[in-house]
Design a protein around this nucleic acid. Sequence first.
DNA 1: TTTAATTACTTTAATATTAAACTATTTGAA
DNA 2: TTCAAATAGTTTAATATTAAAGTAATTAAA
Lengths: 150, 150
Amino acid sequence: MSTHYHGTKEEISALDCFIKLLRAADSVNNATMSQIQANGLTESQFGILEALLHLGSLNQNQLAQKILKSGGNITLVIDNLLKHGLINKEKRKDDRRCYWISLSDKGADLINKLLPIHVKLITERLAVLSPEEQIQLSFLCKKLGKGRSD
Amino acid sequence: MSTHYHGTKEEISALDCFIKLLRAADSVNNATMSQIQANGLTESQFGILEALLHLGSLNQNQLAQKILKSGGNITLVIDNLLKHGLINKEKRKDDRRCYWISLSDKGADLINKLLPIHVKLITERLAVLSPEEQIQLSFLCKKLGKGRSD
DNA sequence: TTTAATTACTTTAATATTAAACTATTTGAA
DNA sequence: TTCAAATAGTTTAATATTAAAGTAATTAAA
């Protein structure tokens, strides 16, 4: 257990920071999952409903960029949301390559019901940090996110 | 686009912080992916090889806890690593419910080759933060991770 | 010692996820 | 105008992921 790779101070600090970052993100995210699952949704499905609520009708490409998933993935998740009657999908008249994806009444009801609880869960979880600490964390994360390759 | 849910200041701050946290974690993580994929591994496979290098032989339960995945998932990923000849799996003599999972020579060579590059990629990515900022971020993330439900 | 509870792992069914190859449509350039 | 390139979405093949139900082995309790 001590023959393997050992890093410099810089590397140890970076790795430590990285693993804590992953765990923290995972941890807060997990706090929202039981709510979502209890309502028969997956995380991706919830993400799409949320985007549609905030942004109105979108095509699949726009959704893919919003929730950072591949086009093929969106096709499938949209399909599952359709099966559950939570969204509408209609071919655009002005560009027949695209579809307008929008919330159905049922979908709008559901996401409007879930979102306040979702926000509350996240807020409670983040409340272990003071307002100043939250601003600090946002700042540091923003800096890290800058290197995005998409 | 303005009929939907609007939160309190506290909620807005928490949501903003949360989304940035997710994006940052995703972003740094993605920086390591091409290395891993270019060597024919998935992220989970890499995680298991890494754990085995650091900790020596483990059973599947221990691996599941290490990489925070379900037991069923471990069964599958172990199976795929076996197909690639990267690990060994042998029934324990003292407890025939368990298996010892360990690195094969091929697996050890691979992870020993990849890990230094992996560490370098993460360190470079984290270098946008000063040492003090990294300590700050670790501290804040640790606080957030405390609420883990596992 | 026999049986009940626990533990380790597997299997199944459903969904997710991606890259890559593909179809259909639109746009733009010769 | 015509055809090449770009764009939107689908499909396929491979892997991941989980919860829940199932099998096998061990432990503990009656």
